[in-house]
Design a protein around this nucleic acid. Structure first.
Lengths: 149, 149
DNA sequence: TGCATATTTGAATAAAATTCGAAAAATAGA
DNA sequence: TCTATTTTTCGAATTTTATTCAAATATGCA
């Protein structure tokens, strides 16, 4: 095997998929050209950001999932988005939100295991601007990205 | 308009998409039949759960996003999955995790606005088995489902 | 090594997406 | 309400894509 699957996973994580217009047409009993028009319109309006795959993350070696609640350093309060945008770049991070309440940023992280998570903590969460973190570890993922596992 | 778009959104939330094999073949410089074989294999192995769309949730009227940290009633400790599976059924809930630490369950909820979220709290989070909740509100979503917004 | 199983690949076929154009429907303005 | 303009629908034709098939190659294992 030319080990093409890791590359497929990378592409599918963010895109490289497309709507099944013909199948939807059959399901909804509408002409496929009408659906085509509406879908393209939704894409143009920016309602649809991407078409992508959802994985069984355990089976692709990313079974260790953590929510990290983050307190920023006070000098970042003026622009929490700076840190957030920087975090969003990392491929292990599924989501980044700027939040109200006790924590300014909430991220969801996927790694292979606790060792890789420790690497992530050392490399990423040590960055300037992050004052304090609280990790919530997922013991079992029941639903993700609207898909039940 | 026959108002077909809400129905499209419902279908795309969980599936009704498919890989773009020809495009991937061009990108990776591999024969499309080889990719076809490998993709089907990954699907059969259960590594791929679904192909779906990621939305700009604000633009589809689901801009209010909340992480809810949940404490279960002590009599649920033996089987936290019961409550978790029940929660996973609700369409407003993007993800459900059983977690370690201060909270037993973590969910991510999407509603139109704070009023709809209040409805959700009253209808769903009032359920038996949930002892206490802490809501973290997203002020701004930077990345979701691995897609930067 | 030798055998069974899994993977790669090109050629042929089947299915699907896309384009186009015309008509219908919806919308905005007077 | 009436009319002009824009948006949306949808069938037919075309282009592109996925899928099937069969043969060749590679891989794992005894």
């Amino acid at each position: 095997m030319k080990d093409i699957r890791p590359r497929l996973i990378e592409l599918f994580r963010k895109g490289y998929c497309t709507p099944q217009i013909a199948r939807i047409a059959r399901k909804l009993g509408a002409p496929s050209t009408t659906l085509h028009y509406n879908i393209k319109q939704m894409e143009k309006d920016g309602q649809v950001k991407a078409y992508k795959a959802v994985f069984d993350y355990k089976k692709i070696g990313e079974g260790f999932c953590t929510y990290v609640l983050i307190n920023l350093a006070p000098d970042e309060y003026g622009d929490p988005e700076r840190v957030a945008r920087h975090l969003a770049r990392f491929p292990q991070i599924e989501s980044v939100d700027i939040a109200t309440g006790d924590w300014e940023v909430v991220i969801k992280v996927r790694t292979k295991d606790i060792d890789q998570y420790y690497e992530f903590v050392r490399n990423v969460l040590s960055m300037k601007g992050i004052a304090k973190v609280k990790s919530l570890n997922s013991l079992k993922q029941i639903k993700t990205e609207f898909v039940e596992l």
